[in-house]
């Protein structure tokens, strides 16, 4: 019996260690899984004076899905808080000596939600009969295109690359207005600009 005791202890120790490491490993892989592939800071672009977000690569880095929070201060035409989800597709990549990748045109779609007393997802049915105002004041659907220059890091760090981008977008209401005013309003006038930097891990 006594001879078995150390073996039992070793067995128990190994099991506990195994459990600990596997749970730690599981935790690490879970964290790894939810860890964003990129963080982003943007100026303007209809989703805030400044906005910050995190994003994930999809479709073998040919697309990204990201979430953003932006704000407009009072002295810039606010105050407003804006929540945005962006889907960006990157169909073209021009590789320059493995140092720079240019994505010349990335189509982008993003719904944005403005919070606050002046904004509702739907106009109140108690106040207006159905269809009185057909749109949502809080939710805008934006469509646009960006252009991105990605500088690849060759340092042995977790930072893979840094991107600079410019993005032009329009939204559902601007598009409706433009469609009805095609003869007087130039096409480009419904597009608004934003600029940003993205750090890819």
């Amino acid at each position: 019996m006594d001879k078995l005791l150390p073996k039992k202890l070793i067995f128990r120790f190994v099991v506990i260690l195994g459990l600990l490491t596997s749970s730690a490993y599981a935790q690490k892989s879970f964290l790894k899984r939810i860890e964003p592939d990129q963080v982003n800071l943007q100026y303007a672009g209809s989703i805030g004076y400044f906005s910050g977000g995190i994003g994930y690569n999809l479709l073998n880095e040919k697309a990204t899905l990201s979430a953003h929070y932006g704000y407009v201060p009072k002295n810039k035409g606010g105050w407003m808080s804006i929540f945005t989800a962006k889907f960006e597709y990157k169909p073209f990549a021009i590789n320059i000596k493995e140092k720079i990748i240019i994505h010349p045109i990335n189509p982008v779609f993003f719904p944005s939600y403005t919070s606050g007393d002046n904004f509702d997802y739907q106009f109140k049915t108690s106040q207006y009969k159905e269809g009185y105002y057909f749109w949502s004041s809080a939710l805008r659907l934006h469509l646009g295109a960006g252009t991105e220059v990605k500088i690849i890091s060759h340092l042995n760090s977790s930072l893979k690359s840094v991107s600079l981008y410019a993005e032009a977008n329009t939204n559902d209401l601007y598009a409706i207005s433009w469609l009805e005013n095609r003869t007087t309003t130039p096409f480009y006038e419904m597009f608004k600009l934003g600029y940003g930097v993205r750090v890819n891990f």
Binding site: Y43, Y49, M80, P104, S137, R140, Y188, F191, K192, G194
Partner: peptide
């Protein structure tokens, strides 16, 4: 085509920075 697009973007750039469609000014 890329150059044309970049030109288009910079052309839009004349007072086209927008913080929100709902900005007050």
């Amino acid at each position: 085509k890329i150059c044309l697009f970049l030109l288009f973007i910079s052309f839009c750039g004349c007072n086209a920075d927008e913080y929100s469609p709902n900005q007050k000014f």
